[in-house]
Amino acid sequence: MGYFNDTAKALRTTMVNAFREPVTQEFPLVIRPRAERFRASFALPDDEHGEVACIGCLACERICPSRVIKMKSGGKKDSPVTGKKRAYIDEFVLDLSACIGCELCVQVCNSDAIVMVRQPEVPAFAREDLVLDMEKLRANAKLKTASWGTGTRLQEMQEPPKAEKPAVAKASPATETAPAPAPAKETV
């Protein structure tokens, strides 16, 4: 008898579901809301003076478990904006095809110079297209929405709770522009 009851129950359940509102979010048209720390790709944002924030300290290159980051330091120069001496990078390459999205590179960055963005890269026809070079990473910083995590925030989060210590707050342009609406294309 249990069989008959269960059968009737199953038939009832499916029929009830058939008249409910479908939960499908029609992907290319509708973008599903994502968690605050959702992240998919990378960007190299500018610092507060409008220069590239990365100083080529190699911290991210060293910590990356997949070893996908390669950079070439440009040495110290006088900044054309502030006039002070600071370090620059000549090249920065991130191979997204082997990235695991662990965000360690963001976490170790003391100058908040690398962040992850919420919009994924477009699926590529060739493996090389997934290698993000400096140009693409800079473009990402302008076009895409930064994820929650920055070096400062992540490091703060990891520190043991000390009430008296003030947070080392650094203004990050990437996070200030975070609530900006995402471009409709390539958005998830």
Binding site: F27, P28, I31, R32, A40, S41, L96, S97, C99, I100, G101, P120, E121, V122, P123, A124, F125, A126, R127, D129, L130, E186, V188
Partner: peptide, 27 residues
């Protein structure tokens, strides 16, 4: 896998979310 068979579309991510897979199919 492209070292031993042809691949048409690469979807980056670790793992890519379901929408990314659909995006890959659209591509």
């Amino acid at each position: 896998v492209d070292t031993f068979m042809p691949v048409d579309v690469y979807i980056p991510g670790c793992p890519p979310n379901p929408e990314a897979l659909m995006h890959g199919l659209l591509r």
